[in-house]
Simulated scan of single mutants.
Amino acid sequence: MTASRARALHLTVALVATAALVLQTVLVVQGSAVLDETQVPPMATRLGRLVSYFTIQSNLLVAVTSWQLARDPGRDGRWWRVVRLAAVVGITVTGLVHFVLLRPLLHLDGADWAADKLLHMVVPVLAVLVWALVGPRPRSSASTAWWTLAWPLAWLAWTLAVGTVSGWYPYPFLDARENGWGAVAIACVGITVLFLAVVAGARAVDRRLAPAPTGGLRPATRAG
């Protein structure tokens, strides 16, 4: 895969992810439903809750990293590797959790339906596919993998703490008032195991596939 083709693919992901985020933001500003909310909260609350969703954060990471890769498909750096792997892993988990746990709870139509599908299905599939095709890789190491887990663990701790105080949770399976702390703990452990599995899988793929992109770019040194 040449660098020019890699740029085009990364640009496609960047455009789709950005469009999905913009559409969802517009809908939230207009007061459209987010998951199971039945009352429209004040604007500041709506925007604060919007950025609290792991879905939004993972799509944002995908958009930011894809825009940068569209400029330089061979980009590298210690912390860049962590952010890029976090984007790939986060968007993968977003798609899987949505499909298994959240999709049956949603009853959306029109633009809300379109935004939901873009954020939870189209961007995850597209982002992972392009990552597998054009990387950049190799970019994985044991330290990169462990640091990648810092963001979802911090998000989970913050979400549970804020939810305990405010009574609002971005996802129903984290609501201890409705499900009890036992069920919430089981959900957290299950999702943590899922993250570990996806990180391990992503690292295995990164180490086994051929370096990418090629075509005028010097491949990065394979991380240990």
Rank of each mutant, 00 (worst) to 15 (best):
Q57K: 01
S58H: 01
S58I: 03
L60P: 01
L60A: 11
L61R: 12
L61V: 09
L61Q: 01
V62Q: 02
A63I: 01
S66W: 02
W67F: 04
W67P: 02
W67C: 01
Q68H: 15
A70K: 10
A70F: 07
R71G: 04
D72W: 04
D72R: 02
P73R: 02
G74C: 05
G74R: 00
R75V: 00
R75L: 04
R75G: 01
G77N: 00
G77R: 00
G77K: 01
W79R: 07
R81V: 03
R81W: 02
V83C: 05
V83N: 03
R84P: 08
R84W: 14
R84C: 04
L85W: 02
L85I: 09
A86N: 10
A87I: 08
A87C: 04
V88Y: 05
V88F: 06
G90W: 07
T92V: 12
T92A: 15
T92G: 14
V93K: 11
T94V: 11
G95H: 09
G95N: 12
G95D: 08
G95R: 07
L96S: 09
L96H: 13
L96F: 13
L96D: 11
V97A: 14
H98C: 10
H98W: 13
H98E: 11
F99N: 08
F99K: 10
F99D: 08
R103F: 06
R103L: 12
L105D: 09
L106Q: 15
L106K: 08
L106P: 09
L106A: 10
H107R: 11
G110M: 09
A111S: 14
A114T: 03
A114M: 13
A114H: 15
A115Q: 03
A115T: 09
L118K: 14
L118A: 09
L118F: 06
L118C: 13
H120T: 09
H120C: 08
H120S: 05
M121R: 09
M121F: 15
V122M: 13
V123E: 01
P124V: 14
P124F: 08
P124Q: 05
L126V: 03
A127G: 11
A127P: 11
A127C: 05
V128R: 08
L129F: 15
V130F: 04
V130T: 12
A132Q: 15
A132H: 10
L133D: 14
L133E: 13
V134G: 14
V134T: 08
V134E: 02
G135W: 03
G135V: 15
P136L: 05
P136W: 05
P138F: 05
P138D: 05
R139Q: 02
R139W: 12
S140Y: 04
S140R: 06
S141W: 12
S141H: 12
S141V: 10
A142Y: 08
A142W: 12
T144M: 07
T144V: 13
A145I: 06
A145D: 10
W146D: 12
W146I: 06
W147M: 10
T148D: 02
A150E: 13
A150I: 07
P152Q: 05
A154I: 10
A154L: 05
